[in-house]
Structures are given as structure tokens and as C-alpha cells.
């Protein structure tokens, strides 16, 4: 037990150091490498907590593929992070500290890690781990009374006594949770991945030739007013910057084919242009 604690302590220390380094570094290439290191360390932490599946995912996704994707982004963004004018944003620090403090405060009442008496262990999940949950007879499922009734009698017990007891058994409990008991969630997780992909396609794919042609025809109806840069009230929408220097997207240029194509490219640059500042504001929340 002590050995585990020592290992945990060392890992936690390293994780903290890496995280701080990620924040402080200005070279984005190094930051990317450090996030890879961070994920690897986290994978070790998960392993130490016996969450092997999580560790596996962390290693594959966190350390592996996302590093490559971030590198791909760096090709556009460049590796230098712009200097911030204010090195320390006190209100952001305060909010982050408060949030962290609250989270730690909340753990004070929590059951200890691995406590066999914890509700997670005792309430429903013991049956899940034993994979001894009876299915609801189909005919009973559609009215809540049946289920509420079941809830009062501690769930599946009356079903367990049912002659139609279910005997399915899968060796990896995590998989049985993810792909069977809660497979409906997993389906949506997959859909989340898909929507991410679709979003990328919709936002970043280059326009086909016919599309560019159609767009040029359409712009003739565009009123110049819509393209004018609109300055928002600085007090209420602090983070809105004027997206481009005034005049750079005048109506005349917009009608040209080249501008249409440039716009698509610009949109990608736009993200890079705004990202650091926006992230700043995000921290404040």
C-alpha cells in the first residue's frame, strides 16, 4: 500500500510539473510534446488506480493521436505563442482557485478511494460487477409503476429470482458496462466522434469549383452593409475583436472569385488569430 502511495506521489508531482510547464512554455512545439508526456504520466496514474481501460485510452488517444493532430494544427498556427500583455490575470486565478478549492472541499465528505463500503460499491454496482442483473420481462417495461415497484425492492432482485434469469458473462467488466448495460451511451459517444468529424468536413473542406461559381453569383445580391465590420459595445462584449482591419473586406473585393477562396482560407487563419485570447477569457469563467 505504501509503495503505491509513493508511486502516486511521485507521479502526481511529475504531472503537476508538466502541467505548469505547459502553461509557462511559449514554444508551442514543446508544449505539444509536454502534453504527450502529461498524457503518458496520467496513463500511469490510471494504471496505478487499476483503471487499465482508461489508461489504455489515455495512452492511445492522449499521448498518441492527439499529439499528431495538434502538430498538424501547428503547421498552420506556427510554433510561437504571442506574448500576453498581462502576465497574471488575477480574477482568472481567483476563479480557478475557487473552483479547485470547491472541488477539493467536496471530496472531504467523499468515501475513501477503494472503500468497499462506498455507495458505489454497495448500492447497485455489486450486482453489475458480478454480472448478475436480470433483464426486465418485456411485458412489464412500459409503465413506470412496474419499475418504481422494482426500485423499492432493490432493483433486480425480484428479477434475479425470476426463472428467466440472465446468465450472460463478459470477462472485462468495463466493456460489459460500456457496450452492454450502458451501450446506449456508448452509441452516442460514437455519434459525438462522428459529429466532430462532420463538423471538420463542413467547416474546413475546400469548396468545389461549381460551388465557387455559385457563390460568386450569389454575392451580387449581398448588401455591402452585412460585410461591414460591426463594432460591438466594448463593455458588454469585451472579447470581440474587430476581425480584420477595416477596409480589408470591402464589398468590391468580396465579389471577386479570389476573395471567395481566400475567405475559406482566412476562416482557418481566423481561428488561429483569435484562439489564444479567447482561451484566456475562457479561463476566467
Amino acid at each position: 500500500m505504501l509503495n503505491l502511495l509513493v508511486i502516486d506521489g511521485v507521479l502526481l508531482f511529475l504531472v503537476t510539473i508538466t502541467a505548469l510547464a505547459v502553461i509557462e512554455m511559449r514554444n508551442l512545439f514543446a508544449v505539444t510534446m509536454l502534453t504527450g508526456v502529461y498524457s503518458l504520466l496520467m496513463a500511469a496514474v490510471w494504471t496505478n488506480m487499476h483503471a487499465v481501460d482508461v489508461a489504455f485510452t489515455e495512452a492511445a488517444v492522449g499521448a498518441g493521436i492527439s499529439t499528431i493532430l495538434i502538430l498538424g494544427t501547428l503547421v498552420h498556427v506556427g510554433v510561437k505563442e504571442r506574448r500576453r500583455e498581462k502576465s497574471l490575470n488575477l480574477s482568472a486565478l481567483l476563479i480557478v482557485t475557487l473552483t479547485g478549492g470547491a472541488l477539493i472541499y467536496g471530496t472531504l465528505d467523499m468515501p475513501a478511494f477503494g472503500d468497499p463500503e462506498a455507495p458505489v460499491q454497495t448500492h447497485r454496482f455489486q450486482k453489475l460487477f458480478d454480472q448478475n442483473v436480470g433483464k426486465v420481462p418485456v411485458t412489464d417495461t412500459h409503465h413506470v409503476e412496474a419499475v418504481a415497484h422494482g426500485a423499492e425492492q432493490h432493483g433486480g432482485e425480484q428479477h434475479g429470482a425470476h426463472e428467466d434469469e440472465f446468465h450472460g458473462h463478459v470477462y472485462n467488466t468495463v466493456t460489459s458496462l460500456l457496450a452492454d448495460y450502458r451501450s446506449f451511451d456508448t452509441m452516442f459517444e460514437t455519434a459525438v466522434i462522428l459529429s466532430a468529424g462532420l463538423s471538420m468536413i463542413m467547416l474546413l473542406r475546400r469548396r468545389s469549383d461549381e460551388e465557387i461559381e455559385a457563390a460568386t453569383q450569389r454575392t451580387e445580391r449581398v448588401d455591402p452593409d452585412t460585410i461591414k465590420t460591426e463594432r460591438m459595445d466594448p463593455k458588454t462584449t469585451q472579447t470581440v475583436r474587430v476581425d480584420s482591419p477595416p477596409g480589408s473586406d470591402s464589398s468590391g473585393a468580396d465579389k471577386k472569385l479570389a476573395a471567395e477562396i481566400a475567405e475559406a482560407v482566412d476562416s482557418a487563419e481566423q481561428i488561429q488569430h483569435d484562439a489564444p485570447e479567447e482561451t484566456d477569457k475562457g479561463d476566467q469563467v
Binding site: V136, T141, V144, Y181
Partner: peptide
């Protein structure tokens, strides 16, 4: 109520 995968609502979704 509708139980996905026909699991009792406390176990499944």
C-alpha cells in the same frame, strides 16, 4: 418508462 437493452432502469439506461 423505456429501458434500453431491457436492463432494469437502475442498471442500464
Amino acid at each position: 418508462t423505456y429501458n434500453f437493452g431491457n436492463w432494469p432502469s437502475q442498471y442500464g439506461i
